[in-house]
Design a protein around this nucleic acid. Structure first.
Lengths: 255, 255
DNA sequence: TTGCGGGCATGGTATAGGCCAGTCTGTGAC
DNA sequence: GTCACAGACTGGCCTATACCATGCCCGCAA
């Protein structure tokens, strides 16, 4: 490993940056891998060579190779599966939180294969933080549903849903591996008329990182939604943890 | 550096995780620093000890210390300023893209000090990608404004704005270090009635990373907005690159 | 055919250094 | 007083290496 930085720059001079040839090697490496993705040499969900192989191939160390891979992960071009390897991210799912279209419909229409898994569905008592958000009385009953959702076999989102039992009595008897909104509409004639959506980018930590099978610190998007009916009655609080590379939010506002 | 992993776990046993005491040290370190932020020992915009100091203080190496700092950065709790150090992130600015409230008003109302800097304001010809998005003819004239915006002296966003000169002739004569919407409303009586907002989390790369003075790969949020008037005439295309820890999007949808 | 077990490859975590480039501060010349 | 410069200090980038935990596959046994 006596190769100098200068030689490396020279070696990749063809596809170099416009000015300032003093680009760090890990960014050069990032660009080379990115090019392979862009040209389709590496297609969605295909696996990259191992970190050890890459670092040997590009004459560098694993640490530096991981830096480059980490960049591409941050850009949403690669993802990793715990101790299995690095993979090419598929296209982001375009998602409009203002519409009442189900996850399943979104994904299917955009060419993906969706799957939903119910991790928990229990009845519990309203904790303080939820009482504050919902207006329900602390200690009263609430339904809690925890789900995990997949696209093309990759877990990309986990959510906690808290439903007011007053508007959906006996809800827990149903199967939640489908659209909850459709269920609520058809079985309970519930219509959401007032939705407050809040979201921000952050890292996924435990327990969500574990649920999605990613390392803690993986970039994510936190989304929550408080829904009420036209009389202002609290219906549900939904809290979603997305992998950051999985979605693209698109909102059309007329007015 | 002969301290074993086990001793470290023991040392931090008081504030340890509930089960599974085999928490990696960089996560333990993350939690200790996070605790100092939560308790207010470290307040917004205050600087942390240097990486070398931290690694010595916690008996570890710079690499591991940087891992912990990187986690907190990903969570939006810390930010760094190029070669100056690590700082505590302030509260996120709550931002509703569906409202016509100016950046300045948002920030001020939430207790921050906003500042806007115009980097460029030129007239150029419509490139192909913009022609497609806007419906304007490729090669026709378009105004381009590039700005950088600060909160409390920290650059947190850079944007490219492309304005249709047909609806705002002579726009470039104005000062853009203020609200562009107010300008358009007051000087040109332009009203935006149709906005299409798209956003997704991604890493900031060059040139945006350079403009904001962060290292490439820093987590960001990409937002763009296409605005038209009530007749469907293209008014502006706005493209924003935010630091990911700077904002929290909040949308209220009634209907 | 099915189930289990062991070994190998993988990423995950960590050490111990090194050089470089930008930031800031203090000092001295003017 | 102010300006320029030197040097200390900071994070940015990189090498080289090690051990660990887990996923996976393959072979063997039931």
């Amino acid at each position: 490993m006596s190769t100098s930085q200068g030689q490396r720059d020279a070696a990749s001079a063809s596809a170099d940056d416009t000015e300032n040839s003093r680009t760090p090697f890990y960014l050069q490496l990032r660009d080379r891998i990115a090019a392979q993705i862009a040209t389709g040499q590496l297609s969605a969900h295909s696996r990259l060579p191992s970190e050890r192989t890459l670092s040997e191939q590009y004459q560098t160390t694993r640490v530096t190779a991981r830096l480059a891979l980490g960049q591409l992960e941050a850009e949403g071009k690669l993802y990793r599966s715990n101790r299995r390897g690095w993979f090419v991210s598929p296209e982001r799912i375009i998602y409009d939180p203002s519409l009442d279209v189900s996850f399943t419909d979104y994904v299917t229409k955009q060419g993906g294969v969706p799957r939903t898994e119910t991790l928990q569905s229990t009845s519990l008592t309203v904790p303080a933080w939820l009482a504050q958000k919902s207006g329900l009385e602390e200690g009263s009953e609430i339904y809690h549903i925890q789900r995990r959702r997949y696209i093309d076999g990759r877990a990309i989102l986990t959510e906690n849903i808290y439903v007011n039992p007053a508007v959906c009595p006996g809800l827990l008897r149903f199967d939640f591996n489908q659209s909850l909104w459709k269920l609520m509409r058809h079985e309970y004639s519930v219509s959401l008329s007032d939705k407050h959506v809040t979201m921000y980018p952050t890292a996924l930590t435990e327990p969500q990182a574990g649920i999605l099978g990613v390392t803690p610190g993986t970039a994510g998007l936190y989304v929550n939604r408080i829904s009420r009916n036209s009389e202002g009655v609290f219906i549900e609080f939904d809290e979603e943890f997305w992998l950051h590379d999985a979605l693209c939010i698109s909102v059309h506002a007329k007015g």
